[in-house]
Amino acid sequence: MNRYLRELSVAGALGLLLLAMAIFAPGFYQPQPLLSLATREAPTLVVACGMALVILCRQIDISVGSQFSVCGVAAGLMAAAKVPLFLVVPAAIGIGALLGAINGVLIAGLQLPSIVVTLAMMVTLRQGLNLQQQGVFVNLPDGVQWFGLSQLQGQWLVVAIAVLLTVLLGLALRRLTAGRWVYAIGSDAEAARLAGIRPQLGTFLVFVVMGALTGFAAALNLVQAPQVQPLSGSGLELKVIAAVVVGGVAISGGRGNLWGVFVGLLLLAAIAPALIHLRIEAYWEKAIQGTIILLAVVTDSIRGRAPKHPARSH
């Protein structure tokens, strides 16, 4: 029971928020806006799953927002050039995986601190995109939005795909040997090495998967609008890190699971619309996100889940 305390308490907080909404702002519970909200957050969920893997490995990736934008624009340009969607999606995944691999080589191969590497990647990719795109939106041809389905069907499909992917990844993390290796590497890389696991290879692959998931998330975002905004992913990194940390994944690695991340993301996703319904201005969102990250790590530390190495985590 105690093992899931964190997940349950986050779920409890979500429940309280939803209850408060039911009492003070019942207008929140309308099926169509809720579905739209879920659809908007679906790509975020996919990225958060990847981020959970990265943080479980005791690393961090703050370049996911820029990766997301790059994949989105690249996929959009391809779609605009009439490449069929069933090729665009794998291409987006591939581009993401490639970007992740660059991070992976620098972090796992050269043992550079992930925070600085991904900070540099974040800006390089973002400004590179600006340079290429000059802020111009990519217009998509017909048949791309909602996979050519009706909006309602498309929305359900996007949400279903994201949830299905989360469930599959969650199961893989729990039930496949490779999933357990992620925990082992994040818990104690040296003990992992002694147990015959290759921590550097594992970390590299986790960054590749992170990139691939980001690419896929960008594709899920692509189909939601008639055009692609060049900076669709800005600020995404903070949102997913917040979701992962709030969901109980320890920043010191090796602890947490995707169910917690799922609930954490629901909580964070509900905050912005809740603010609007509760007539608190939406400008507070970023401040609240920051506060939630800090509160989550502070409670972790107080509950004795403090980082094993109080210095910087590399």
Binding site: I251, T291, V297, V298, A306, P307, R312
Partner: peptide, 11 residues
């Protein structure tokens, strides 16, 4: 609180 500077200052 002995938290890593990285996550604190990210917050």
């Amino acid at each position: 609180l002995r938290l890593p500077p990285l996550i604190v200052t990210l917050g």
